[in-house]
Computed example of a mutant assay.
Amino acid sequence: MITHFQWKPLFKDKNLPGWRISFYFKQQSFQGIYHKNGEIEWTGAQPPSEDEASVKSMIHELMLFHVYE
Rank of each mutant, 00 (worst) to 15 (best):
P47F: 00
N15A: 08
T3G: 04
K36L: 15
W7I: 03
N15M: 07
H4K: 14
F11G: 02
W42N: 01
S49P: 15
W7Y: 13
D51K: 13
K26G: 06
K26S: 07
H35N: 13
W7D: 07
D13F: 09
I40N: 01
Y24M: 07
E39D: 12
H60S: 12
P48M: 04
S29T: 06
K12D: 10
H60N: 15
L64P: 10
I40K: 00
P47Q: 00
Y24E: 06
G38V: 06
K56D: 03
F65W: 15
S22P: 01
P47R: 03
K36T: 09
T43E: 03
I33F: 04
E52N: 05
A53L: 06
S57K: 13
E69Y: 08
S49N: 13
P47E: 00
G18H: 02
S29M: 12
S29F: 11
V67Y: 13
Q31Y: 01
E52F: 01
L10S: 02
Q31T: 02
E39Q: 05
I40P: 00
A53C: 06
H35F: 11
K12I: 12
L62T: 11
M1D: 06
I21N: 03
K56G: 01
F65L: 15
N37Q: 11
Y34R: 01
I21Q: 06
E69G: 07
Q6S: 10
G38L: 03
D51P: 14
F30E: 00
S22A: 11
H35C: 12
L62I: 12
H66F: 15
S57E: 08
K12M: 08
L16C: 06
P47W: 00
S49W: 09
M58H: 12
W7Q: 10
I2N: 01
G32R: 10
W19G: 02
I2M: 01
I33H: 04
Y34V: 00
L10W: 00
S57C: 10
K56M: 07
H35M: 13
E69I: 02
G44T: 05
Q28E: 11
K12G: 08
N37G: 08
H66Y: 15
G44E: 09
G32M: 04
F5H: 05
W7G: 02
V67I: 12
Q27T: 10
D51N: 13
Q31F: 00
I59E: 03
S57D: 08
H35S: 12
H60Q: 11
P47A: 02
D51A: 13
F25P: 09
W7L: 11
Q27N: 13
G38F: 02
Q6R: 15
